[in-house]
Design a protein around this nucleic acid. Sequence first.
DNA 1: GCTAATTGTTACCTATTGGTAAGTAGTTAC
DNA 2: GTAACTACTTACCAATAGGTAACAATTAGC
Lengths: 116, 116
Amino acid sequence: MDKKSLSEDCLRNLRGIKDTQDLLSGKWKTSIIGALYHNGKFRFMELKRHIDGIAPKVLSKELKDLEMNRLITRKVRDTMPITVEYELTPQGKSLNKVINAMGEWGVRYRELMMKK
Amino acid sequence: MDKKSLSEDCLRNLRGIKDTQDLLSGKWKTSIIGALYHNGKFRFMELKRHIDGIAPKVLSKELKDLEMNRLITRKVRDTMPITVEYELTPQGKSLNKVINAMGEWGVRYRELMMKK
DNA sequence: GCTAATTGTTACCTATTGGTAAGTAGTTAC
DNA sequence: GTAACTACTTACCAATAGGTAACAATTAGC
């Protein structure tokens, strides 16, 4: 039926790509993970300040998504006033190759586009 | 004002992450690039068959986006009937680190989720 | 002459995304 | 007592993404 057909390995890989894409969907998730990756921990307002342009509602929703997928943890600390810390799980940290590659590629792409 | 502040390097990196995320936005772009990466070239219908569930309208739009951002090329070959070949540009190929990392991570994530 | 394939386009619809602006509830500093 | 900080939530709205179904224009095979 189809002349070219991809191997089992390729198909598994493509499904992996799709899974990752789905988990990192939306405008902000990679930025959040990137920020947490650089800094270890961040509180809600710190994240909001570092991620330029994100609305609190949206940040809140993205954090919930990431928590549900076990990429970050949310820890409420009983301080005055209450502070909340967000941190990558080992799962989330294991995204570093993806995030780093995205960062490097993006920096290079921007440089290239500037030159032209 | 803000106790924790990220270095110039980190900020550039975060911007790179965001740029990459924006270029790869949507449900299908990484899948398309992944497929092209594995196979070199693909025709429209071949892509459609290999990317499970994508509608022709959507595929068409995604391909236009990718072409506009110079990640793929579109070549019309004067055969009977006309065939169209899509291929990664050097720019697009340079995304391999990102795409590979996404593929590998996704495969591992799925395995982990299966076990639990 | 009918069917099927090529690469798309068009019209239409809906669900989701993402944004704004305001509010909540508690605490602290001036 | 009022402003400001914490971490959010709520109501509302607009734009977009993405899907379905049908169609276009050409050619080939039966």
